[in-house]
Lab assay of single mutants.
Amino acid sequence: ITGDVSAANKDAIRKQMDAAASKGDVETYRKLKAKLKGIR
């Protein structure tokens, strides 16, 4: 179950990262990237 949750989280975070990148929001992008590392 835990694996599914983190996989879903990663997917959601990647989508947020894409949105931040397209807006040029480097700050948010970095925060999300750090979150991704924390999940692993």
Rank of each mutant, 00 (worst) to 15 (best):
I1S: 09
I1M: 08
T2I: 10
T2W: 13
T2E: 08
T2D: 07
G3K: 09
G3F: 05
D4V: 10
D4Q: 12
V5L: 12
V5M: 12
V5E: 07
V5I: 12
V5C: 14
V5K: 10
S6R: 13
S6A: 07
A7S: 10
A7D: 10
A8G: 09
A8S: 11
A8E: 09
N9P: 05
N9E: 13
N9I: 15
K10G: 07
K10P: 09
K10C: 15
D11M: 08
D11P: 04
D11T: 08
D11A: 13
A12S: 12
A12F: 11
A12P: 04
A12D: 13
A12Y: 09
A12H: 07
A12V: 07
A12L: 12
A12E: 13
A12C: 15
I13T: 02
I13W: 04
I13R: 00
R14S: 03
R14K: 07
R14F: 05
R14H: 07
K15T: 05
K15Q: 09
Q16C: 15
Q16T: 02
M17C: 13
M17F: 01
M17Y: 01
D18G: 04
D18Q: 14
D18F: 12
D18V: 14
D18C: 15
A19L: 13
A19K: 08
A19W: 06
A19S: 05
A19P: 01
A20R: 00
A21K: 14
S22L: 14
S22V: 09
S22D: 06
K23Y: 03
K23N: 06
G24Q: 03
G24K: 04
D25R: 00
V26G: 04
V26Y: 15
V26P: 03
V26I: 13
V26F: 15
V26S: 07
V26A: 08
E27I: 05
E27D: 09
E27H: 03
E27N: 04
E27L: 02
Y29M: 09
Y29K: 12
Y29L: 14
Y29W: 06
K31R: 07
K31G: 00
K31Q: 05
K33G: 01
K33N: 04
K33I: 06
K33M: 11
K33A: 10
K33S: 04
A34W: 01
K35F: 13
K35Y: 10
K35G: 04
K35W: 08
K35P: 00
K35E: 05
L36H: 03
L36R: 02
L36P: 00
K37Q: 12
K37Y: 03
K37I: 12
G38K: 14
I39S: 06
I39P: 05
I39L: 13
R40Y: 12
R40Q: 13
R40M: 15
R40F: 14
